[in-house]
Design a protein around this nucleic acid. Structure first.
Lengths: 210, 210
DNA sequence: ACTGAAATTGATCAAATGGTCAAGTTCAGC
DNA sequence: GCTGAACTTGACCATTTGATCAATTTCAGT
């Protein structure tokens, strides 16, 4: 695992409980934010008493960081796969696939991560500037190479990555808005397929006729 | 104003205070979320006592809704301008301009709005499904017409709008992440210009060479 | 200047909530 | 079965915080 979680459950049952708490924490924190989440709620969602939650995580803050660390690991994974060997269409297309699948499979984690960043990333600025920054550095080189080889339009790698993150994460992060406008979300197979096709078309080929 | 705020300040000084409170509320709510924000902080930011804040807004919730209503009005404005008479390139380009300028001028409002939606839009689901939904309905027709006239690639209007919202709002909403990766934000003239050019290029022309 | 409405706040309350603790229960290894 | 460590929780504490209120000050219109 890339992002350390400093937990040390002493037994099998302890590990299971830590998992249960992290799962519950993800749901509750994403729904109410750090301050809005109550340990009571998390305990209830994890089906155990409040003091027991505090037995595994000494403070609410410690639990929150643990939950965040987990989501960040998942968030980073698709980018690691971006393959310089493939063609830009194939590599970027696959990246969009992976990111959109992430939005589909882990919308709650996506939202928690987003909310944390929007509120200033106070709890993971460390990780962002190390873990993420170094991974980005490597991928930027790949994109620049493609541009130099004229296999990609002249574009700043940063803006390219931002555009892909934005469009793909939008389907998880703004699911509530999308649901009121379309009545659907990514769990719908057809909607997932149409979203994927649309994002790829827009990002890779653009809107205007050629 | 499109979204009603039910306030009724009885005097000039009252109006001024309501403004001060709304401004302060926007900052504090966006920084800590609804539950995390304390009326104390808002009062301090508005330079008045806590009971005085509650004098103008009877509850924290009422204040929060008022702040939200304001941000939503600003959020809707650029879309209203989307002009069916212009060419797709001109109209959509202008829309991207306006949305990106909004991200530049009102990043805090953008984040508050985003956080509210991510946490389920509990406080504005009403407005989303009426105000926003009807505006979208009108604009969808415009986009469909462009597609029929072959002046736009075959694309679902919803996905097109989502892509523009996502890419433009991303610069405000994820400013913290962008800052750690690039060291810049939209207040930087050069960065604003490059972001604008990049978003337009990607959305309108796509990444792959023609 | 006078007057009533609007504005302002110190003091205070009641509920919510993060965290502690002592006391018990369960479990793995012997 | 015994034992010590791991686990579990009801009861409780201290603090925070949304909201109230009585009392005072400021303001606009006459």
């Amino acid at each position: 695992m890339a992002v350390a979680s400093l937990k040390k459950p002493k037994s099998r049952i302890g590990e299971v409980n830590v998992e249960r708490i992290l799962d519950a924490g993800l749901v509750i924190f994403s729904r109410h934010g750090f301050s809005g989440a109550r340990i009571d709620q998390i305990a209830e969602a994890a089906e155990m008493s409040k003091p027991n939650v505090l037995y595994y995580f000494r403070t609410k803050e410690e639990l929150y960081r643990a939950v965040l660390g987990r989501t960040l690991d998942m968030w980073l994974e698709p980018l690691r796969e971006l393959d310089p060997q493939k063609s830009p269409r194939e590599a970027l297309g696959h990246y969009i696939d992976r990111k959109l699948t992430y939005s589909r499979m882990h919308p709650v984690a996506s939202r928690l991560f987003a909310i944390e960043i929007m509120q200033g990333a106070k709890h993971l600025s460390q990780v962002l500037s190390t873990e993420l920054a170094s991974l980005i550095e490597a991928k930027k080189a790949t994109i620049r190479k493609w541009v130099e080889e004229k296999r990609l339009a002249e574009i700043d790698p940063h803006h390219l990555l931002f555009a892909i993150w934005a469009t793909t994460q939008h389907y998880a992060d703004f699911a509530a808005q999308i649901a009121t406008l379309t009545g659907k979300d990514l769990s719908d197979d057809a909607f997932f397929a149409s979203a994927k096709a649309a994002v790829k078309r827009i990002i890779l080929d653009g809107l205007l006729p050629r």
